[in-house]
Design a protein around this nucleic acid. Structure first.
Length: 485
RNA sequence: GGCGGCUUAGCCAAGUGGUAAGGCAGAGGUCUGCAAAACCUCCAUUCUCCGGUUCGAAUCCGGAAGCCGCCUCCA
């Protein structure tokens, strides 16, 4: 397995600290609002990484945190007129619902910041004792950035240049503008915890350092998150842990690229975000997941409903091939037809190629390319008369189907039952395009009757009508079937 | 301004020195009452541009242009 490591800015061979085990941490959400596609991308990317590492035989111990106390949560609570912990609870629940639909596996640990105040305080105390942090007269605690020599190493920043852009907020009492908060004294009306430095609450960065170490030990094999977390969040996490423990924090830093809309980053501040719930109203979650995997995880991914529809078509193509395979296998063919060698070879190589692509810095786009190659072969075997009545073809098809299911399980897509998926997809598209099912079925029946009576003129008229409604009819030996365009 | 990234067909997108995967759209054919789906064939002599290294470059080096991100909360 090779991974691009943000720390070294190189693709590197992945070697975990303990043989056969991977300790992985990913920054989760701050629970103050609904998740959008950007959150989904991060979740899917690291979910696939976990699944693939497990497929390779590693035991993966995976922690993903919830930031459940933070300025934004307090702000949101004031807006909604409910307690801050209610805000966190509400959005954590929403997160679970949205992620379950996306087929994201549950991490081994899901630590919450508010449940680890003690661990954070202990870590802060170590930093104070070692001279890496200081307490102000207001009861805030700051990290002394200049005391930490390799600050900026992860994000490739120069401390002098950072200084030029650094700002000091009103009321802050820092030694240096670069210093960041480890502990913030509470203002009236804000939640607080007791601490050696007075009542207050933790800064954002310290939770990840404290919780990742507690659950996974050091150094973490993999630390993931969105590219936007690289600076300052991850840089600060690294500073805290390295300064306190005198050991490198993370072996492999992995950052996923942004989801963009018309070339711009999708974000709260730009207001161009699309929530997962909005997507789910129109598309199956699996379609979104598939879409998110069509591009390499590091590069920006442009979101549009057109692109989602393309992903939907592509995914449908795989499921239709699976459905056809199932049907041929169930028909118990008896003949024996020689299968061209190149087909046999390609089927045999499929899994290996797919795996190679994922081993190369999780190249899901390339893996999907190989998937379509095999889909094409499967279609040929199920559609061509000479093949589809053959017994030996069935064994090849079984191999393809098993392969698709096995590999689909890594990506978390196209591994469901095809009939189930296609039925759900049809419903979703009917809903999306506002098509009345009864009306369509009535027309299709009418047309079938007309065809039976060889009244092709009427049949074609009805077909045109259906087409205008957004429905395509296909005539098969077993009768007419229809689908949403 | 500093740092980083990107630019491959009408669109989406792989490809990190050996002669351009895949998907969508499009054209022709097989099948079909006609269609649809599927299959077969075709669809980038060329990878933003200009130089260079090399037997050989989309891939390496230098330069230019355009776009994007981070530098403040953000997946």
């Amino acid at each position: 397995m090779y991974l691009y490591n943000s720390l070294t800015r190189k693709k590197e061979k992945f070697v975990p600290r303990e043989q056969g085990k991977v300790y992985m941490y990913v920054c989760g959400i701050t629970a103050y609002d609904l998740c959008h596609i950007g959150h989904a991308r991060a979740a899917v990317v690291f979910d696939v990484l976990v699944r693939f590492l497990r497929y390779l035989g590693y035991e993966v111990i995976f922690a993903r945190n919830f930031t459940d106390i933070d300025d934004k949560i307090i702000k949101r609570a004031n807006e909604l007129g409910i307690p801050w912990n209610e805000v966190a609870k509400r959005y954590i629940e929403a997160f679970y619902e949205d992620m379950a639909k996306l087929n994201i596996l549950k991490p081994t640990f899901e630590p919450r910041a508010t449940e680890h105040i003690k661990e954070m305080q202990e870590l802060i105390q170590v930093l104070i004792d070692k001279g890496y942090a200081y307490v102000t007269s207001d009861g805030d605690v700051y990290f002394r950035v200049r005391a930490f020599k390799s600050y900026g190493k992860l994000s490739g920043r120069d401390i002098e240049e950072l200084k030029a852009g650094a700002r000091v907020e009103v009321g802050e009492n820092k030694e240096d503008p670069l210093d960041f908060a480890l502990w913030k004294s509470s203002k009236p009306g804000e939640p607080w915890w007791d601490s050696p430095w007075g009542r207050g609450r933790p800064g954002w960065h310290i939770e990840c350092s404290a919780m990742s170490e507690k659950y996974l030990g050091l150094p973490l094999d993999i630390h993931g998150g969105g590219q936007d977390l690289l600076f300052p969040h991850h840089e600060n996490e690294r500073a805290q842990t390295v300064a306190a423990r005198d050991i490198e924090f993370v072996s492999y830093w992995v950052h996923n690229g942004f989801v963009q809309v018309k070339g711009e980053k999708m974000s709260k501040s730009l207001g161009n975000f699309v929530t997962l719930r909005a997507i789910y109203e129109k598309f199956l979650p699996e379609v979104l997941r598939f879409f998110l995997l069509t591009k390499h995880y590091k590069t920006p991914l442009d979101f549009s409903y057109e692109n989602l529809e393309e992903a939907e078509k592509a995914l449908k193509k795989i499921y239709e091939a699976k459905k056809a395979i199932k049907e041929v296998i169930q028909s118990n063919p008896t003949k024996n037809t020689p299968i061209p060698e190149e087909i046999v070879n390609e089927v045999n190589e499929f899994k290996e190629k797919f795996k190679k692509a994922l081993e190369d810095d999780l190249n899901t786009a390339a893996a999907l390319g190989f998937t379509f190659n095999i889909v094409k072969i499967a279609n040929r075997l199920t559609q061509e008369k000479s093949f589809k009545k053959s017994k030996n073809v069935t064994s090849v098809l079984t191999k393809i189907l098993d392969g698709l299911n096995e590999l689909g399980e890594i990506l978390g897509v196209f591994s469901s039952d095809p009939d189930k998926f296609l039925a759900e997809l049809k419903n979703k598209k009917l809903e999306r395009k506002n098509i009345n099912r009864e009306e369509i079925e009535k027309l299709v029946l009418e047309r079938s009757l007309a065809r039976k009576n060889k009244d092709f003129k009427k049949a074609d008229e009805i077909r045109d009508r259906l087409f205008k409604l957004g429905v395509v009819v296909k005539d098969t030996p077993h009768g007419s079937i229809w689908d949403v365009e």
